[in-house]
Structure formats: C-alpha cells, structure tokens
Amino acid sequence: MKTVMLSDEAYKKLASIKGSKSFTELVSELVDKVKGVKLADIDKFFGIISSDEARSLQMNAAKIRRRFKVRA
C-alpha cells in the first residue's frame, strides 16, 4: 500500500464522483479509462493520409530536426 497526497481541490473532485467505490477502485478505473481513450484516439488516425503524404511529413520533420540540434 502507498500513500498519495492530493490537493484539497483534487480530493473534492474525486470524492464527488466516487459513489460507493473506494478511492483505490475509482483511481484504478479512471486510469484504465484514460489508457483506453489514448489508444482509441490514436486508432482513429490510422490510414487517413497516403504513403506519399506520410513520407513527405517524415522528410520535413527530419529537416526541421537537423536545423534544431542541441549543442552540449
């Protein structure tokens, strides 16, 4: 078991939606939802641009990266 510190505002927000669940159950459920949303958000973009467009974007990104190399 671990202790997590929250601001009063964050605690109130969690408490207002937890219902009969424990905070552990609620946080676990919310984390799972966020993970699922991120994957779903990415999936909707697969195949929306052509291979030529993707190649062009990659080349442009590489050019930009070369111009902004960090000096140590």
Rank of each mutant, 00 (worst) to 15 (best):
I64W: 11
D32P: 00
S22K: 06
F45S: 06
V37G: 01
A61T: 11
R71H: 04
R66T: 09
A62F: 09
K18E: 04
R67Y: 04
V31I: 15
A10V: 09
S22C: 05
L14D: 00
V27C: 13
K69H: 06
T24V: 03
K33E: 14
V4F: 15
A54W: 12
K18F: 06
E29G: 02
L14K: 01
S50N: 01
M5V: 11
L30D: 01
L14G: 02
S28Q: 10
S56A: 11
S56N: 12
R67A: 12
F68E: 11
A54H: 06
Y11G: 02
F46M: 09
S7K: 02
F46Q: 13
V70G: 02
S56M: 07
A40F: 01
I42P: 00
D43P: 01
A72K: 13
D43M: 04
L26E: 03
I49P: 00
S51M: 10
K12G: 05
S56E: 15
V70M: 09
S56R: 14
R66I: 08
K63Q: 11
I64Y: 12
F23G: 00
K63V: 13
S28I: 08
K69M: 14
L39Q: 12
L57T: 02
K69L: 14
A61D: 09
I64S: 05
A61K: 08
V34T: 08
K2F: 14
K33S: 09
G36F: 03
R66K: 14
E25P: 02
V27A: 14
E25I: 03
A54Y: 14
V27E: 00
G47V: 04
E25L: 05
A10Y: 05
R71F: 02
K13S: 09
A10N: 11
S56L: 12
V4R: 03
I17A: 05
I42G: 02
L39N: 06
Y11L: 06
L14H: 00
K44E: 07
N60L: 13
T3E: 07
